[in-house]
Nucleic acid binder design. Structure first.
Length: 456
DNA sequence: AGCACA
């Protein structure tokens, strides 16, 4: 009560303090630069930068009052003003006697980033886009999104602070690349700090939060509301509840679609764990299980509406299944569990092999041997083929690769390019889904003619 | 161009 007096807020002459107040600092002035500036006059014991609304103010605290006085008097009579990076900074005694260093969580490096998405359309940035953007720097464990007074925010969890830091350093202040956003969405800037969290709690997979380490996490009821699986997103677009299991129905099935053909087509996007085929409404349908939702999302986006064979034959319609884990009772020509090692390939299709430069062929258990696991979710390790690790871990890419655009010849024409992986999120070289012959994908949405030799 | 709060 008594301490707050009616003194004017600013005086032309401040009483000396060992804390100095600096303003007009260059953008993102560092602690080191402040120490450099003060060092000639004494021992800088504390600093605080990025202060004020424009974050262009700072404080320097000296060990001794005389050192602060020395600095002020020097620049008071100097012909050269104090400068940081060539920019004149203004000094005065602070009206505080010490720096209270609010080392907020935002300053302490951690494995979880607090991301604020700025922009009129920030809310239209999907969690999948965020996942793609941040996956360029390492395996993203979890993402939660929420609305705060600060706007639309997300917490992005990496495995360690180093990975998080590389993402933060590369992405803070940058805009989300346009090619990742729907056309109608305006520019969105990312503001990134560290979060105090170290492990996010994600109860459900939903449009607001994801746990990429646990594909078997139940899908939120909120994401199921309405009839069937469709919910309406913020942009009014129909959004399906994503699942790691896809339901594919095949239209205009002029040619036999075998289990192996399906396996090949869907393996282009990641390891296929299980496939079950069945007849429904006179047509053929299949359930295809991936270890994780994001792989299924990518596969669905890439394959929906496309034809397995040239000429509009065997057109795929893909939706998300409600299943998360198929129960395959028996391995036969209509159903298979590829996660069980040593499963003999009952009906090998030699004609499919070697015809095209598709490296995913061969016995499922022998694939992916080249890629040492970088990340292996321990709880799933025993259930999954070694491929899981290889697919789950995005190759580490330097931050500099982020702002650059996608390879010019992005082979897939996506309806919604939100799922286009950034360079670092690309599967290891040789994933066939990423290597469609560009000519066949640009004009007509046709898959490479796997096994076309048998057709013609 | 004028003093820090998630």
């Amino acid at each position: 009560m008594a301490s707050v007096s009616s003194q004017p807020q600013f005086r032309y002459t401040q009483p000396p303090s060992k804390v100095l107040h600096l303003r007009n600092l260059p953008w993102e002035c560092t602690e080191e630069e402040l120490i450099e500036l003060g060092k000639p006059f004494g021992k800088v014991v504390n600093t605080k930068c990025n202060v004020g609304a424009n974050r262009n103010q700072a404080f320097i605290e000296f060990a001794d009052l005389n050192q602060a006085i020395a600095m002020i008097s020097y620049y008071a009579s100097s012909s050269e003003p104090a400068q940081v990076r060539g920019k004149t900074v203004y000094l005065q005694y602070s009206n505080r006697q010490e720096i209270v260093n609010n080392k907020t969580a935002a300053d302490v490096p951690g494995n979880v980033l607090l991301v604020t998405i700025e922009g009129a359309d920030a809310r239209l940035v999907s969690i999948d886009v965020l996942h793609l953007v941040f996956s360029a720097f390492g395996f993203v464990h979890k993402i939660t999104t929420f609305e705060k007074t600060a706007g639309f925010q997300a917490l992005v969890q990496f495995s360690d602070a180093e990975t998080a830091t590389s993402a933060k350093d590369a992405l803070d202040g940058r805009i989300i690349p346009r090619y990742l956003l729907p056309e109608n969405v305006g520019p969105c800037t990312l503001r990134i700090t560290y979060s105090g969290h170290s492990d996010l709690s994600v109860k459900f997979q939903s449009h607001r939060s994801r746990d990429y380490t646990n594909p078997y996490l139940p899908v939120a009821q909120s994401a199921m509301e309405g009839s069937g699986q469709a919910v309406v997103g913020l942009d009014g677009k129909r959004i399906e509840t994503e699942s790691n299991v896809l339901l594919a129905s095949i239209e205009n099935m002029q040619y036999a679609v075998t289990l192996d053909v399906l396996h090949m087509v869907f393996s282009a996007f990641g390891p296929v764990q299980k496939i079950a085929m069945f007849d429904k409404n006179g047509g053929l349908q299949a359930l295809i299980q991936y270890p994780d939702i994001q792989t299924a999302v990518v596969a669905k986006e890439a394959l929906e509406g496309h034809c397995i064979y040239d000429g509009g034959f065997c057109k795929l319609h893909i939706s998300y299944s409600r299943h998360t884990d198929l129960s395959i009772k028996v391995n036969n020509d209509r159903s298979r569990d590829y996660t069980i090692p040593n499963t003999p390939v009952v009906t090998p299709q030699p004609s499919l092999l070697g015809q095209h430069p598709v490296p995913m062929m061969g016995a499922p258990t022998q694939q992916y041997n080249g890629a040492p696991p970088q990340y292996t979710p321990s709880s799933e390790q025993t259930m999954l083929p070694p491929s899981q690790a290889a697919w789950g871990a995005a190759p580490q890419v330097g931050p500099q690769s982020m702002p650059q655009s996608m390879p010019q010849s992005m082979p897939m024409q996506m309806h919604n390019n939100a799922y286009m992986p950034p360079p670092g999120a690309m599967p290891p070289q040789g994933a066939p889904g990423m290597h469609y012959p560009s000519h066949s994908m640009q004009s007509t949405p046709t898959l490479p003619t796997y096994g076309s030799d048998r057709i013609q």
